[in-house]
Design a protein around this nucleic acid. Structure first.
Lengths: 199, 199, 199, 199
DNA sequence: CATGAATGAGCATTCATTCAT
DNA sequence: AATGAATGAATGCTCATTCAT
């Protein structure tokens, strides 16, 4: 289990921090945060627990770092979205890009979704909520009626669900992602049209 | 330490099991399963940890019992759904009833959604997946195209999201639930219409 | 497991104490005293733990009662031996009878031998040592030299070993017991002859 | 609570594992395995329970390690015996050496003998039985009659009994050991002679 | 850059025992 | 003659964390 006495040890120099993150994310996503112990992470890397503490001050800091590193694209996305005009095109483009961003950080998002109770008590909890709210505020027209607001939120959640739950739907993964995106875009469109009609 | 001589002790005889379930569910939903210790549950009830073990063989058995007691309505609902003709009306009625069932066991479902990683490793994990699949199979027309299948799943997830995420949307809770339901019904309707057109 | 809803319940009236002893001895012999819990005993009998306490004041009292009930023949044997003349015939007859007595309370003696550390701390520990000493004092001629004293003790231990360790020697159980007895008698004889010669 | 500022702490560095084994063996032999708690061991060493777990994965591993470390001479002895011709001299030399080996690991063997019920359920149980069988197979001539087979086993058990039970026989310990050995050798001799006669 | 050794706090679980009914 | 409900004390074990080297 794990390369012990072979040459791999040379190669790993200098990127231990990164390797910790990789293994940690994998285990967090698989078993949850609480059920993953630092011992387990250390063993997989064939280092001691103490080594982890050289790179990260606490266990929490490990996922914080993962969160910060991996959700940067989404932060940028929100920033971008805020500076666009609130048109349907903007919203749809945002949804498209968000879908891509999600795919790019799948394990982290799976983790966030499957460990909400834990995440809530962690330092990242609030940042995450902020991000979600940021997206929502761009997608939702505050003047829109409640049903359309729900439509927008639902679009976001369809994307989330798309990553995990839809996995056990049959079909080609790529096509599934396209289908998910289409449904999300549809919801956004409906929400937008009504809003225009209401003015 | 010890007896709290305030008369409350009389009333609790004979319903301790129920009280354990109540407190446990509350804490599990609030802090997650792993972070809730039996000590904490016991302290809230002013009994010893050992008393919990008189009523439940393990910690896991506590949530198993909660799950079994509280998801009975949904099991019944699926049973009902299976015996109806696969019309749009059936599907919409199913969604309506499911929405109600969710509302009736809110804390449990919040728990299930926020502790998925944990639940997956617990004995209830599979039962839960089965239930979800059961619902899906009624809502989804296997001949439908992928996009419409996604619409149906998305309807279910909209209901789930509705319970928790939408909470920090402004507005009257009752109206919000109605709005959520309307969006879900809309998705179902779209999925169904297309399917008809495809034949 | 165990007769629950059948007619056996009627028949067991009045002999519960006895049944507790039986089951307890069986389990003690099989798993040891410490590893056998009252819960286990109670479950096998299909009664509650509290019922055990109606019949025995403590766990320890259960084995004490077993010991007292089952080693009566040996106590009697020692009493008999003390009143005989210290001839070879007496000693050999004692060994023969002891061998029989052992066979008649096998599970108890297996228990005593396999749980010596435990027994030592229990109230029966001393009684047991007393019995052993009693036997020894009859078999051993205080004037005999050390080697012959060891022979006598060894005879006793050969009988004990015969019950358990020799079990995985091949051969007919009855013949094995006879062989064991023969060896023990031989040791006694040697010890006795030397002693005579020494005078 | 805490550090006992008396300098002893320097000396103990690096040999904690050994010290754990020492104390554990002492307590196991004295009180039995089940009745000796890790807390007790830790307290005697003035370390925390967790420290024990740094050195041994489980409680069981502590005695396993003791067993493996301390019974090596016996394993070697059996190996030696297997390669000798099956003469009387070999057997007697084996018994002599076994007697010495027993003396060298007295507490462990006392433990094994007084906690047989426990040992049987532990991982070492089988290894122990194997060792005993190994010895037996060297001492016993399969063609010998049952009585002589019993004699051989009895010789082994005389040695065992010699260590513990004979303790409360009066006399100089060294002389007692010699006497025990003589009796054992005598039994072996008898067994061997008969066997020759039978051919 | 990392290890070896250890800690303090906590956890789920089990046990013998008690007592009102 | 026995049960239902509970307790107090303990147990083996795990975890995140620390720190001298």
């Amino acid at each position: 289990m794990g390369g012990t006495m072979d040459g791999t040890k040379q190669q790993r120099r200098g990127n231990t921090r990164q390797r910790i993150q990789d293994v940690a994310l994998e285990l967090f996503a698989e078993q949850g945060y609480e059920k993953t112990s630092l011992r387990e992470i250390a063993e997989r890397l064939d280092v001691t627990k103490a080594a982890l503490y050289y790179h990260f001050k606490t266990k929490e800091e490990i996922i914080v770092s993962l969160f910060e590193d991996l959700t940067k694209p989404i932060e940028d996305l929100i920033e971008w979205g805020r500076q666009q005009p609130p048109t349907l095109e903007t919203k749809q483009e945002l949804v498209r890009r968000y879908s891509e961003a999600l795919a790019g950080a799948e394990p982290l998002f799976r983790f966030m979704q499957e460990n909400q109770a834990t995440v809530r008590e962690l330092r990242i909890g609030d940042s995450f909520k902020d991000r979600m709210r940021g997206l929502r505020d761009i997608l939702i027209d505050p003047a829109a009626d409640l049903v359309d607001q729900v439509r927008s939120v639902s679009a976001m959640f369809t994307l989330h669900a798309g990553m995990f739950v839809m996995q056990d739907l049959e079909g080609d993964p790529v096509k599934k992602r396209e289908a998910v995106l289409e449904v999300a875009l549809g919801l956004i469109e409906q929400a937008h049209e009504h809003a225009r009609g209401n003015r």
